[in-house]
Write a protein that binds this DNA or RNA. Structure first.
Lengths: 344, 344
DNA sequence: CTGAAAGCGCTTACAG
DNA sequence: CTGAAAGCGCTTACAG
């Protein structure tokens, strides 16, 4: 029976205390770095811990202290590099706070997400960072706050009453439209794909607004396949309208990369015959040819912000909901050129 | 005092038992889906749980049961899409086993990794899936097994005595060399970058062996920058030797993508003037132009394998160490052509 | 199939 | 600064 072995082997705080000739409470104070303990006592206890190979048992501590030093992170997707960068920012900040990340993938399915949230709660997370699946029922967020579980929404939001970290998509879209307009483009398409959620609507609304502000028609909103591999061959969808566009803004860089390939296949020289503008400014943008001009949304920073927001909320649970919206930045590279070079 | 509120609100198994008119032990059996409980009793308890909004407290359960239903996952990198895909495979299998992933990023730093492993242990994980940081001291693995913590190594290995899930890099390299040789290439370079570890050595050894098996010289092993953005401009490094190569095999697709850009910048038409072969067959390979031929190592599958290996070991801790090495597959697309089309 | 008791390893007041 | 006691919410034998 290996579990019996383990039990036998397990050295507890009481063992440490005995060896150091102090009480268990004192040993506990040493672990938690309390200033109440004298230097020599502390040294004795620490030595005993080393000698005995003591391992702190978070499980026991958290049960008593009602705190677990864990945070749940639920993302809708793990293979999109954008989310990997986001996660990387979250992990860094949580780790630096001596806490640990419980990771789960909702696959953008609300039912799965419900299950995951419940599981996180059973595991006693102190809070959760949630990028809500498309079609998340706002009731979920209400329930989470009923449960007194701290939550921050990241990238997408379904509730105004809950912390949120994201990027200024509307501002980014304005930068995109202004830039293309300044190059003389008037027929500008907006290519979208993927699940429909707040960030999706925000960008579409912002596209419409930015176009209208310049008296341009915003009717070229083109829906492309979700699967990355299918995007290139779907590029002709951009040219089905009577008035063909001379430029396209992409919902994200994954889409831009796919369309770049598709347009290439159609014989376009991007940046000359046709302009392509991405969104997110993922690492790949730099290694594409032509290099992709893209609106940077800084996923790592958003992740860091979300984690910090959660840490702040844990420290002060009753403070009003915050939103941390980072400015976007247009990273001009080579994929956009003056209008007028259109082929065919 | 919010923690007092929480304590007051918390409904425990005892509350459930009382409402259902059973003992706490019986309620516990219902939760754990024991067949010992009668159908009507079970129904009564389940109703009580619903009525009271009962939440299972894993923390309490795990302390008694000496099992946490969590597994630690330590990866050296989170922004490389390859690791994101790996993680996605791991998460899927762990989730399906009703367990949860504790994620951490070692940044390929052994000291950080030591700290993370210790933290995982304090958090009471049942086991850990580790992609060892470069220069990991094998003593770490020994220590983990001293601790009776189940471990599986993924992608890289530092110990023979510990489970391992990876891909057959040597076989993949043979496929790569054979393919290029069949196209008539004789001067083939191998471009490497990133941290040095078992998978690195495996590929280099396999490259040498495969080249020598065809009586080709394997002296063109070229080291390129780690940072993605610096790779394109470093492409000329491939051509510093007197006898210039007509093809290059890349350590991974990130490198291939960067070199593809760099070669393009140098005026090469890839697949015509020069052949480029990737490794890993990441999603991007399909949306590059020309499409990247690449040796598929199926990261998602490797992740799934690693997770299953860990699950098996948890079920049977004393079984001998396993290795699960998946076959690679050469995915031919457009980036390689016959030798002889060399420019200049 | 059900009940009463003990205990997992900590932390938290409360005295001293 | 230290000690003795209680308790966090479960599960585990052990009786019945």
């Amino acid at each position: 029976m290996p579990s019996e072995d383990r039990k036998k082997n397990r050295v507890t705080l009481l063992d440490v205390a005995r060896r150091a000739n102090v009480s268990r409470a004192t040993a506990s104070l040493v672990i938690r770095k309390s200033p109440l303990v004298g230097t020599d006592t502390r040294a004795r206890v620490e030595e005993a811990m080393r000698d005995l190979g003591y391992v702190y048992n978070m499980g026991a501590a958290r049960m008593r202290a009602e705190r677990s030093y864990t945070v749940g992170v639920i993302v809708p997707n793990l293979t999109n590099p954008f989310f990997a960068e986001l996660l990387s920012g979250i992990e860094a900040v949580i780790d630096a706070a001596d806490m640990v990340v419980l990771l789960a993938n909702s696959g953008d399915q609300p039912e799965r997400q419900d299950r995951l949230v419940r599981r996180m709660r059973e595991h006693g997370v102190d809070g959760v960072i949630l990028c809500p699946a498309a079609d998340t029922d706002p009731a979920l967020l209400a329930q989470l706050s009923d449960w007194e579980l701290s939550v921050v929404q990241v990238l997408r939001h379904v509730s105004e009453d809950v912390d949120y970290a994201g990027a200024d998509y509307a501002g980014g879209m304005r930068q995109a439209v202004d830039y293309l307009a300044s190059l003389g483009h008037e027929r500008i398409a907006f290519a979208v794909h993927g699940p429909v959620h707040s960030a999706y609507h925000e960008r579409i609304e912002a596209f419409r607004a930015a176009m209208q502000a310049r008296a341009l028609t915003a009717d070229l909103i083109v829906r492309l396949p979700d699967a990355t591999a299918l995007i290139p061959s779907a590029a002709p969808l951009l040219f089905e309208a009577e008035q063909r566009p001379t430029a396209v803004i992409c919902f994200n860089d994954v889409l831009a990369l796919g369309l770049s390939a598709g347009l290439h296949d159609m014989g376009f020289r991007i940046g000359e015959h046709f302009s392509l503008l991405g969104f997110d400014d993922v690492t790949d943008a730099e290694t594409m040819r032509p290099r992709l001009s893209s609106v940077s949304t800084a996923p790592v920073t958003i992740g860091e912000n979300a984690a910090r927001l959660l840490l702040d909320r844990l420290a002060e649970p009753s403070r009003p909901a915050q939103r941390l919206v980072t400015e976007t930045h247009l990273h001009v590279r080579q994929s956009c050129g003056p209008a007028g070079g259109t082929l065919g």
